[in-house]
């Protein structure tokens, strides 16, 4: 099969608001990055691909079939949504077992598969812990696990790296690359170009519901380097990390924001957010690699690392000029 996803004049409106407009494209095998700022139409497109919503106009086939109300096709797809919602009281293992049995696997095979998927995403140590007690990164990983566990032909990951710590990001990025290496088809969406670039060179740029460019990421690479990249790091000891980062030439600016004070409503100390370090770098590739190493070296606790959406907006503004 040459095309995994094929669309022709695909459009979707939400009343007066457009989700995607007149999308005609073909996504081939391997790993494809769906890149666009928040609100670009990535999730709308993926929701149509996974049969959750119907196109308003145009046609869409996934693995050669129409996905709308097509339960059989869903057995061939694994989907990790960007929504952070779970059966909180279930353990990670039970959650996977239930979804696997629900998908038609036997109890025995389901248990084996759940363990294999947990190992794949590095969550074996937390298999018997309740999902409600998982960190943001662990929750993302269990979502990825449930998308992979039934061995689907096509894996769809909607913003899988959101909220992951640097180590989990690196592991998940390697996992996606690995899936591509073993000839799985993966569509992974992100609003951070550097995340997608680390996973694949095959990208689809989407902005305001339209495809701006598709093909090899290196073609737009030069444009991106012109724009300093802003990264927000929620961490303990931000001054120490900032001091170490400032030693590098590519760092344009660093600022630290204290977390909002507790409201006195009994919020546990561990739930309170850490200070926010905002760093602007001219060499994002090197920066991401470096920050991971620094965190490991210094043992500074990082609860969240996110790229400001403005980075990609700037690139898109340039592209649509």
């Amino acid at each position: 099969m040459s095309s995994i996803v094929q669309t022709k004049n695909l459009s979707r409106w939400y009343g007066q608001v457009t989700g995607v407009i007149d999308l005609t494209l073909e996504i081939g095998g391997g790993v494809t990055g769906l890149l666009g700022p928040n609100g670009a139409g990535k999730s709308t497109f993926l929701s149509m691909v996974t049969g959750q919503i119907q196109p308003t106009r145009g046609s869409l086939t996934v693995l050669g079939e129409d996905p709308w109300n097509n339960p059989k096709l869903m057995g061939r797809i694994g989907y990790s949504s960007e929504v952070d919602a779970f059966y909180e009281e279930m353990t990670g293992f039970d959650f996977l077992c239930i979804l696997l049995r629900y998908s038609g696997l036997s109890r025995k095979v389901g248990r084996q598969s759940a363990d294999a998927a947990l190992e794949l995403v590095g969550l074996s140590h937390a298999r018997d812990r309740k999902i409600g007690g998982y960190s943001k990164g662990m929750r993302q990983r269990i979502k990825v696990a449930q998308a992979l566990a039934h061995e689907p032909e096509l894996v769809i990951l909607d913003e899988p790296l959101n909220g992951m710590d640097p180590v989990a990001r690196a592991e998940t990025t390697r996992l996606v690359k690995y899936l591509g290496d073993v000839k799985r088809h993966v569509i992974v969406s992100s609003h951070v170009l550097y995340e997608v670039e680390a996973m694949t060179s095959q990208i689809l740029l989407i902005h305001q519901g339209k495809v701006l460019a598709e093909g090899n990421i290196h073609d737009i690479r030069d444009l991106i380097d012109e724009h300093p990249h802003q990264v927000k790091i929620e961490c303990a000891r931000p001054r120490e990390l900032a001091a170490r980062l400032l030693a590098f030439e590519d760092i344009v600016s660093v600022s630290i924001d204290s977390p909002p004070e507790g409201d006195g409503n009994g919020k546990a100390p561990e739930e309170e957010s850490l200070p926010l370090l905002t760093v602007t770098s001219r060499k994002p590739d090197e920066f991401y690699e470096r920050v991971g190493k620094l965190v490991l070296e210094t043992g500074i606790e990082v609860s969240r690392l996110s790229s400001a959406d403005d980075n990609l907006q700037a690139v898109f503004k340039y592209l649509v000029r």
């Binding site: 239930i98 696997l100 049995r101 038609g104 696997l105 294999a116 998927a117 794949l120 689907p152």
Partner: peptide, 28 residues
């Protein structure tokens, strides 16, 4: 990493689907 090599999800019809939902979600 080793990708699991178990059988692909076979899917469920209305009766089998309903039954598995009861089995899995009733305790909850």
């Amino acid at each position: 990493w080793n990708l699991p090599t178990f059988p692909r999800a076979s899917g469920r019809g209305p009766i089998s689907g309903a039954w598995i939902i009861v089995l899995l979600f009733l305790p909850r």
